[in-house]
Design a binder for these strands. Structure first.
Lengths: 192, 192
DNA sequence: GCCATAATAGAATAAACGTTCTGGAACGCG
DNA sequence: CGCGTTCCAGAACGTTTATTCTATTATGGC
């Protein structure tokens, strides 16, 4: 067995993720990563591959965590309206916490989707996954009589997803937490 | 009087705008502009200044047109709900028309706002301007009794603006026109 | 027709970029 | 202790970037 790594692979990946999230792909140079992560150039290449691969790895990690979080938050016997309200509020708190870097997926959708097929596919898959989670939770609520059966769960789910996209952009560029929460609450009136 | 320009200044600016809109600032190199606009490098510098200035000029032009369009569309005696529905539908049609380049302001908010103070200020101003237009139209509707007076026009306006942001991102990365319109219609239920 | 002026085309420049190469240092195992 | 392997620091490479320089061409008023 040879020399051991002097850094924590997952931890550094998270740091890279936050850098990409705050600055975007193109605006984050490899030298920025080397400087701010405190890991040598060659070690980064050895560990994560090139810049694009590193970005995608970080993005996938981010999405996995996001999906996990959503699944956990939706798995709550409380009334849907309350569940979604808490979910949106927490998302806004998280996005506005450290200087409003927004959502890495949204940032990727805007910066990379048009000219990167992988990102485009990932965005589409992720969107469908979230919509699916939302829709099934909404269907369950319908079965419990919490919301009207006349509403289309998929349309509602998609609308809520689109709302998240909007709030992420606003949080990144405008970043007024209170008005974001107000908007989220208005959006959730669609459930009544 | 010396030699005359061989290109139309406004027309080329619009072409540059569309390039920036489709690819973003960083992903559009100056050589791309030279190649695709059919105007020489030096002429571009002479006419519009450097790349950043050109971008901002294009963005301002885009915003002026957008505000004009909004003002014109809202200046309609029809019921608010109908007016906003038509406005959203037209916006979606426009954004999804030529390969879903999304909205230049939204793209700028995501790509540039975090590290460019000018863009950040422009985004904030523009957001307030649109919110103001929406809010005053909603207030007028309240006076005419079209929507309940209990609702806060500014909160509603802000929510509608956030909805536009979300639809722009979705149109750019996902680009399914029909579900976007469905979402817009759901969002407008907030007026009832 | 000439001259000042300004537009154009393309070479040139300097910096930044992503990536790879080189040399040496650190570690586990025999 | 060395031997092989892996890690690391920094130099080096070739490309791309934004911007400027140079030279040429075209134009309108005298």
């Amino acid at each position: 067995m040879p020399r051991a790594k002097e850094f924590d692979e997952a931890e550094v990946l998270d740091q890279a993720l936050e850098l990409f999230r705050a600055r975007g792909f193109k605006h984050t140079s490899f030298s920025d990563l080397v400087d701010e992560l405190g890991v040598s150039r060659q070690s980064l290449y050895d560990t994560y591959g090139d810049k694009q691969t590193l970005y995608q790895t970080a993005l996938r990690r981010y999405l996995d965590r996001a999906i996990d979080g959503i699944r956990r938050k939706l798995d709550d016997p409380a009334p849907v309206r309350q569940v979604f309200t808490e979910f949106f509020d927490r998302m806004i708190d998280g996005n506005c916490a450290h200087g409003s870097p927004g959502c890495l997926m949204v940032n990727s959708m805007v910066e990379l989707s048009p000219h990167d097929a992988d990102t485009r596919a990932l965005a589409a898959t992720h969107a469908r996954e979230i919509e699916g989670l939302f829709a099934s939770r909404l269907s369950a609520a319908q079965r419990k009589g919490e919301i009207a059966k006349s509403k289309d769960p998929i349309a509602l789910a998609r609308f809520l997803y689109h709302t998240i996209l909007g709030l992420s952009v606003a949080s990144r560029a405008l970043g007024e937490r209170d008005s974001l929460k107000l908007s989220a609450h208005l959006a959730l009136q669609v459930l009544d």
